[in-house]
Design a protein around this nucleic acid. Structure first.
Lengths: 216, 216
DNA sequence: GATTGAATTCAACAAGCGTAGAATTCAACA
DNA sequence: TGTTGAATTCTACGCTTGTTGAATTCAATC
């Protein structure tokens, strides 16, 4: 499954010079390594080894580790439109509350091949690298904030941002506990159980009264 | 403010040989560095420099970086009893819902001197080090699970663990977004606002029906 | 004041890191 | 077939890391 193997199996194909599949193989390998070990933990040498390639080649294609990270993590921004659409309206069963649907959509995205690695890499690195933290903030703004703005209660921009941040905090906490810290009960739960348990809270963040703390 | 300064200012005190304040100074410095940079990012040399001490001395006292980390992060386990008590019952104003009180207590703990560094160091390192992740899991079990068990609805142990994990995910997500990712709206919000916004969701996790997703 | 044992410093090792540039292979084209 | 330019490899630099052991300082005890 290395890049050299694939080149060998492809043999003399119609590719023009300067375009084997290696460049993409490196990017994919980088996503996996960043997802598993974070920015600092992932080494260029390990990325190259996983792609079956010389370490210097990584540098030749992407210039520096930081640029490679940016290129690898930019992956979710492409299907983010898909995510946003899924979060907002389409593909929602009639009568299903929006909060429940958002939880289900997020879980589906996090378990789909490319997005999973990019998102986990971003989250793993965000706590140690300010650059990664900024990228994650931007990603959240691109996805959560937009979809919240189209469905939120108050029209006040500040309040909408507050609601979106609350939703993001619950979603990130879920991803953190389920996929990275591997809290038993959350890791074992099904998407349906989690949607039923967490969805109503999301709905409250979306349209509920956030100033009523439930005092008797 | 280095250890040597303090020894100099203390002069010939009544301390017995082998007990300057250096050992504790190193531990405190380590907590700060681990909190700011995580396990991998914090270097023994930086820890020693911040304590005004030779790097080898760190090793002389604590043996290895891993043992130093364990010693520094064990700090929260001491006031964890305090935290648990605060989360459970005492110091709660009459009529204030438990969820709101838990949020307020957590915020207070995270902003108090020693706990803040230890907790953030644990959280920052948990995503890159499996050892730190295990320590964080244990810490959560020690604090959240116990206090939830004493107030949760169902007596089923599995369901109680599920409820506790949900609460932990929301709390960790809040800490993540507010203190580390620095989401504007959450970082700027007051403890009261956050308690009012998040508390009711915690109450639902504590005693609500988690199988009703709010379907119309 | 000599002794003792802990605290502290010094210098250095081995390993791993990101990065760089020269050398080489190789596929397409004239 | 020889040329060309990109892909790929080799070797190595400079730096930082955790760790180690020997040497040194220093406060308390006899």
């Amino acid at each position: 499954m290395t890049a050299r193997d694939s080149r060998g199996s492809l043999g003399r194909t119609g590719r023009r010079a300067g375009d084997s599949g290696t460049r993409d193989a490196i990017l994919e390998s980088a996503r996996g390594q960043f997802a598993d070990h974070g920015y600092d933990g992932a080494t260029i040498r390990a990325i190259a080894a996983a792609a079956g390639v010389d370490p210097a080649l990584v540098h030749h294609f992407y210039g520096s580790k930081e640029r490679l990270f940016a290129a690898a993590m930019q992956f979710p921004l492409i299907p983010s439109e898909t995510i946003r659409a899924a979060l907002a309206d389409e593909s929602r069963e009639p009568g299903e509350p929006l909060g429940s649907h958002m939880v289900r959509s997020a879980l589906a995205a996090w378990e789909s091949p490319g997005v999973r690695e990019a998102f986990q890499g971003l989250l793993r690195s965000a706590l140690t690298s300010e650059r990664a933290a900024a990228m994650l903030r931007e990603f959240v703004a691109e996805t959560v904030l937009r979809s919240v703005a189209s469905a939120a209660g108050g029209s006040d921009a500040g309040e909408t941002a507050f609601r979106a941040a609350l939703i993001a905090s619950q979603m990130l906490g879920l991803a953190l506990a389920r996929y990275m810290l591997k809290f038993g009960p959350l890791a074992a739960a099904s998407a349906d159980e989690l949607a039923a348990a967490i969805g109503p809270g999301i709905d409250r963040y979306l349209t509920g009264d956030l100033r009523d703390n439930g005092l008797a």
